[in-house]
Structure formats: structure tokens, C-alpha cells
Design a binder for these strands. Sequence first.
DNA 1: ATAGGGTTAG
Length: 457
Amino acid sequence: MVCRFSTKLLNICISSFCKVRQLEKAEAIIIDGIRLGVLPDVVTYNTLVAAYTRFVGIDAAYSVLHRMREAGINPDVITYNSLIAGATKHCLLSRSLDLFEEMLHMGIPPNVWSYNTLMHCFFKSGKPDEANRVFRDIILSNISPCPSTFNVMINGLCKNGYTANALMLFRNLQRHGFTPKIVTYNILINGLCKSGRLGAARTILKELGESGLMPNAITYTTVMKCCFRSRQFEQGLEVFLEMKEKGYTFDAFAYCTVIGALVKTGRINEANECMDQMIRNGIELDIVSYNTLINLYCKEGKLEAACNLLDEIEKGGMECDKYTHTILIDGLCKAGNIEGAERHLKYMNMMGFDSNLVAFNCFLDGLCKAGEVDYAMKLFESMELTDSFTYSSLVHNLCRARRFHSASKLLLSCLRGGMKILRSAQRAVLDGLRSSGFTREARKLHSKIRLAKIFHY
DNA sequence: ATAGGGTTAG
């Protein structure tokens, strides 16, 4: 009895240390406990697995699982759900599936949480059909769905382009005996907004107002972002003011949204003021905040400050992400430092950020602008992944170099790949061909573009 | 133990 109570205390201690990322201290307490005869139990290890998953990585968490087994404690459904969640967070679908399989193999029956997480993983990996199958299994089997099941589903449908289905499911929630929560509204408003259905987003926002639920900081940030997306800047800034009054600017999310919008519209001074405000208010800067700051430096032409900040971040032990590198590569290109951009592109690849399409697109455009169109075309041919940005940029730049036939060929291969291309890029090719006397080619190209449109839209 | 908001290019 005494021992059980002690283990409970031990677990409370460990949970507290894990919450503030002090994993070494948590481990030390376990050792102290064992010395005093207080043995860790399944809860102890589950707490550790969750913490390692969140702060270190899935492999570190998996090694806790081994230690757990060695200590003679059997993992349970919570252990596996944590691990599956960790794999999902890093978009490791096959890892999630393996863990699910392993759980079944161990004779541990999965619960709704396991299925919710698996569904989320399928959605995140761009496999909505598989996610739908899991959802159908939940509904048709004897596992009862929980409110999160519907939230995961509505979110996944939105993110995979099925906003109409998401809206339908939302409308049917009551029939399943569930009332939407603030999370549900946030998911839906965000999804509708990102897919350009602003009218529908506004309707849901109005319904949220009538529901009696309190909008939270996430709701506000979402709505603010919607304003910026639809170019209603002043309205967006008003939302930001309201957030500050309500005390909803306690983290970096709202600040980064506003600074990003200000930078994009060239309001650099205001962006700087906002950044200062965030720092003055003692908000802890995470990697996204640093990315926003590096972007601000780049747009101001302070490339040296941007590079130095990146070094500092890495020295400080925080991990830069693909955004950090891409922002800097674009900044270097725009400042005319192609060599520097290429060096950083190589560095980025060395750091394991390969196939970063946006970074390559920035570099391609930079090369062209620096007059290295041939080098850009060579690089383009070696790229395994391209998108409408790649083609629009190259076509534009080929036209600038008055290489209209190459531009025309590239434009057609883009359309053949079923990709969209900027209308202005199409115009540039057609106008270029006409003005240099190739009226027949221009007419032929025009009719091909029209046909492609009929089949793709 | 799972789900919702922020940063990049033409």
C-alpha cells in the first residue's frame, strides 16, 4: 500500500519534469526511486514515452519501450498510442502502421484513440481514402466514435480538399449525438478559408457566435489570417488589436501572422515595430518566430544579420527547418548573391533537407535573374519534383531572354503534366511569339492551351 | 494518449 502510494508520487514528479522538458532529471528520479525501493510502473514509462516522443524523437521513445520490457513491465494501449502519435507527428505512415500491427501482435486491443491517430496519419500522408476506410471501420464496428473522431475527420477532409464533405459531416454531427466544440469550429473556419470558401467560413463564424461557445486565441488567429488572405488588411489588423485587448497575444502565433502579412505588403517599418513588441512582451521565440525575423531581415536587405541569426539559432541548439533555409536562399538570390545561395542550398541538402521544392524554385529563379538561364534549365532537367511555380518562373524568364520557342515548349510540357501555370506566363509566350513574327506558332499554341483547359478544369 | 491557429518561391 505504501509502495503504491510512493509510485504514484514518483509518477507525479516525473510528469512534472517531463512537462518542462527535464528528461534527464526524470530519469534520475527513477534511479533514485529504485534505490529507495519505489518501482516504476506502466504509468511511469508511458509518461516517459510521451515525453521522448514529443521532445526527442520516435527512436528515443522506442528505446524506452525496450527498457520498459526489460524491467518486466508490459506496454499497454496508451504506450502504443503515444508511439503512433509520435510517428504521425513526423508523417511516418509506415512506422505508424508497423506499430499498430505490433500492438495487435502483442495482444493489446486498440481503442478509439488508436484509430483516431491512424486516421490522422493517413490524412496527413495525403491518403484520404485510407483514412475514410478507418472511419467507416470505427462507425461500423463496435468501437464507438468519440468527439475527436469527428474533429480529426473534419480536419482531414478539409486539408485534403474535401471541404464540401467536411461541411456535410459537420451538419450531421448532431445526428450522431455530438455537439460541435470550439475546436470543431476552428477546424472548419480554417479549412473553408484556406480553400477559398470565404462565404461559408463567415456563415460558420456567425453560427459560432450564436452557439454560446467562447472563441479562443486560435479562433482569432484563424479569422485574422483569413482577412489577410482575402486582402482585407485593415480588418485583419483590427482583429489583432482586439486580440491584444483580450489578452490573446500570449504566444508567437498572432505576431507571426501579422508580421508575415506586413512584410508581404512591404510595410517593413510596421513589421519591425510588431517584432519589437513581441520581443518586448517577453514572448519566447520559437523556430517559426525566428524564420519570420530572418525573412524580415532579408526583405530589408540585411543579409549578414540574417546569416548570423541562422548561425546563432543552430549554435543555441534549436533546429532550423526547411523554412529557415528556404527564406535565406531566396534572400541571397534576391540580393544577387547566387554563389552564397548555391552554397546554402548544398548545406541544406547536407543537413538532410533534400527535395525541398520551394528552395529549388527560388534558386532557379535567382539563376535566371542573374542571366544563367542555361544553368537553370540544366538544373531543372535534373529535378525529380517540379510544380506550377517552377514552370511559371522558367517560362517567364525564358521570355525575358527572348527565347520564346523554348518557353513555348516548356509551357506545353507543363500543361501535359496537368499543372496550372500563371496566366501572365502564358501571355508572355504568346505575345513574344507574335511580336517576333511567329504568328502561326502563337495561334497553334493558343489553341493547345485552350484544349488543355477544357480537359483540366 | 489523438484533433484546431503562425513563417518560404513564380
